[in-house]
């Protein structure tokens, strides 16, 4: 026993390992999902909106007559509207959500902790995945119940549905993250992001049958992912005979994969180039 032993400093604790990005990302995801579904405005006015539009448009154009190819106009809407649902839960929700996180202090607070940026994005991806699955299920249910949409039975068709859904969600989420920087504040983000969403719905044959659109509009819309998302979902949810209503007279699934894949890459590049943690400051 000696009396010369240095007294341990009060803060000298053994360095515990930092928590993993995955564990933190899962915790962020759980918090994001809770916050989203607890916000009544978000659930009623944002999440349910595409189903509401589908009910309205489907009912207005429900003439009872079959289109060339056999399906009804409402069934075409029901299939195309899946693209709108994904835009809503991936592109708009993420874009508006990140702009709001920038404004209300979420990002600033997280940046002051040891959490990684990747963990934050894992949280967003979990929210998008959960919300999108719920959104697509809701839209399919409305399509089946209200408009007699027939769900495919062949596993291969569901496989196609799966990859179109996955590519669509990745592309829309990445572009949404990048687009969150377009809005100067969280308050006007929804307004700013809604313009391209609405414009693309009309020009890409989601709100209006693509066969009735002007040629130039279709050509321009072909550069964007929404047209190919709609076409992809029509290919799996409508009878093959309906391919006559498409621009090329066929489903063009390889082009769908190519364009959506390209937008995933473009979205990633845009994210890396434009993402900011904080609001743009005046002066």
């Amino acid at each position: 026993m000696t009396t010369t032993t240095a007294r341990p400093r009060p803060q000298a604790r053994p360095a515990a390992p930092l928590p993993s990005t995955l564990a933190n990302g899962l915790a962020r995801g759980a918090a994001e999902v809770k916050m989203f579904f607890r916000s009544k405005e978000a659930v009623i006015f944002t999440f349910s909106f595409p189903a509401f539009v589908l009910l309205l448009l489907g009912s207005i154009f429900d003439t009872g007559e079959a289109m060339p190819g056999g399906a009804s106009m409402s069934q075409v809407f029901a299939a195309s509207m899946i693209a709108y649902g994904i835009l809503n839960t991936a592109f708009t929700s993420v874009g508006v959500g990140i702009a709001a996180d920038r404004e209300d202090g979420t990002l600033k607070r997280l940046r002051g902790t040891p959490i990684t940026a990747s963990a934050y994005f894992i949280g967003k991806i979990i929210l998008v995945a959960v919300a999108t699955v719920a959104e697509v299920a809701l839209l399919l249910a409305v399509g089946v119940v209200a408009f007699g949409l027939e769900l495919p039975t062949a596993p291969s068709t569901w496989l196609t549905f799966g990859w179109i859904l996955l590519l669509s969600v990745i592309a829309c989420t990445l572009v949404g993250i990048a687009a969150s920087g377009l809005a100067k504040s969280g308050k006007n983000a929804a307004t700013v992001l809604n313009l391209p969403v609405i414009a693309l719905q009309f020009t890409s044959g989601v709100f209006v049958a693509i066969s009735s659109l002007p040629d130039v509009m279709v050509k321009v819309a072909a550069f964007f992912p929404v047209r190919w998302m709609g076409q992809g979902f029509r290919s799996v949810l409508l009878p093959d005979s309906m391919a006559v209503g498409e621009v090329a007279g066929s489903w063009e699934l390889p082009v769908v994969a190519l364009v959506l894949g390209a937008w995933c890459v473009v979205g990633l590049l845009l994210c890396l180039l434009t993402f900011r943690w904080t609001e743009r400051k005046a002066g």
Partner: peptide
Amino acid sequence: RADIGIVLQTATDAAD
């Protein structure tokens, strides 16, 4: 970052 703590002045996050 694990060794510092920050008390923000004006955050309104995580209301729900």
